[in-house]
Each structure stands twice: as C-alpha cells, then as structure tokens.
C-alpha cells in the first residue's frame, strides 16, 4: 500500500545526501514514481542506492576535494582532542575532590568511563561534520564518507589493544570503561560526524516552485 507522500525521513536524507547538478530532477523522478504506485520499501531502496552512488561519485569526481576533506578533518579534530583531553585532565581531580565525592556512580562515570570527555569528542565530531557539509554542500555524502574513513586508523589504534585485553581474559567489570570507550570511538564518533553533516541545511538550487 502506498500513501501520496514519500517517507519523510528518506526524503530528508535524499535532500541532504544526494549529489550532482540534476539532484532536484532525480528527487522529482522518485516522487513521481512513488505517486505512480511504487511502495515505501522501493523508495527506501532507491534512497540508499542514490546515497551510496552519490558518495562514490563525489569521491571519484572530486579527488582533490576528498584529500582536502581528509586534511580538514584532522585539522579540526586533532586540536579538539588535545584541548578537551587537557581540560578533562586538569579538572578531573578537582571534580573528584569537590563535586563527585558523594556519588560513586557519578565518580565512575566521570573518572573511569570518561563520559564528559567522550561527550565532548562527540560534539567536536558533530561540529566537524557540520562544517564540512557547509564547506561542500553539493557532495556531502562522499565527503562524509571520507571524513568517517579518517576515523579508521584511530579506531584500530584504540580498538586493537582492547581486543588483546579482552582475549587475555580481563574480568568484564574492570574492562567495562574501556569497552564504553571503544563503542564511543568506533560507533559514537563516526555517527556524530554523520549526524553533524546531516544537520547542515541542504541547497536545492534548481527547484522550481509549484
């Protein structure tokens, strides 16, 4: 069964992540086919294929932009990691002495799981995604893919020792904060970057009013 309006989320993703000078016509075609009787599942399939195709097309067509995105990603994130890491280190014991003394749960979240630091990192990654999308609004799927790929060395550097510790039979509770960190680094940070990139407003220059 189909409704007259395509799935909103799919449409929202298409407007932000599809690329190419004929993007408005492509989205118009999908709307026309959907209103012609195609299903929501068909629309979602097309959406994912358009986004995947756009990402590959962006990188193939703009290799210099891809390299620039890679450089910008590190240029934004390296200072952010350095500064937030230092601020966290300087304030940690002050927080323990003055604020977190009465709650063991808060203490563990702050000191062992390093939630404030990881949250600040997520914010930094999201901001980076947003800035990159603003800089390259017409090929943000490809550039988001490049920026997310830039996380792979970090994730491997961070994840490999944890994998070894887990294999060495470290008890679950003592490794829990580390597992939290790995989840943040491998899933939370790339996801934050993509979300930040999606939050920047799209440009649909060739849209013709009804």
């Amino acid at each position: 069964m189909t409704t007259s309006r395509p799935p909103r989320l799919a449409d929202w993703l298409l407007r932000r992540l599809a690329s190419g000078p004929k993007k408005p016509s492509l989205i118009g075609d999908l709307h026309e086919q959907f209103r012609g009787g195609r299903s929501a599942a068909w629309y979602w399939r097309q959406t994912f294929r358009v986004i995947g195709g756009s990402a590959a097309w962006d990188i193939r067509r703009h290799p210099v932009l891809a390299v620039r995105t890679l450089a910008l990603t590190y240029l934004f994130l390296a200072p952010w990691v350095y500064f937030t890491g230092n601020i966290y280190a300087f304030t940690k014991w002050w927080m323990v002495d003055h604020v977190l003394r009465r709650s063991i749960v808060l203490h563990d979240l702050w000191v062992l799981d390093q939630i404030p630091l990881l949250t600040a990192w997520c914010f930094g990654w999201a901001l980076t995604g947003w800035v990159l999308a603003k800089l390259q609004p017409d090929c943000r799927a490809g550039m988001a893919l490049v920026a997310v790929s830039a996380q792979v060395p970090w994730a491997v550097l961070y994840g490999a020792p944890i994998w070894r510790l887990a294999n060495a039979g470290l008890p679950f509770f003592s490794s829990f904060p580390v597992v939290t960190g790995v989840v943040f680094v491998m899933i939370g940070l790339p996801a934050s970057l993509v979300v930040g990139s999606l939050l920047a407003e799209p440009q649909l220059s060739a849209r013709v009013p009804d």
Binding site: S25, G28, H31, E32, A206, R207, V208, P209, D210
Partner: peptide, 14 residues
C-alpha cells in the same frame, strides 16, 4: 530542464 508537476513536488524534469 523541462516542466515541473505537482506530483514531482514542484521539481523540474531534465
């Protein structure tokens, strides 16, 4: 670029 129609959400055909 061609005409737009309501079922296309106001987007022109190419």
């Amino acid at each position: 670029l061609g005409e737009s129609t309501p079922e296309r959400g106001g987007r022109a055909k190419t």
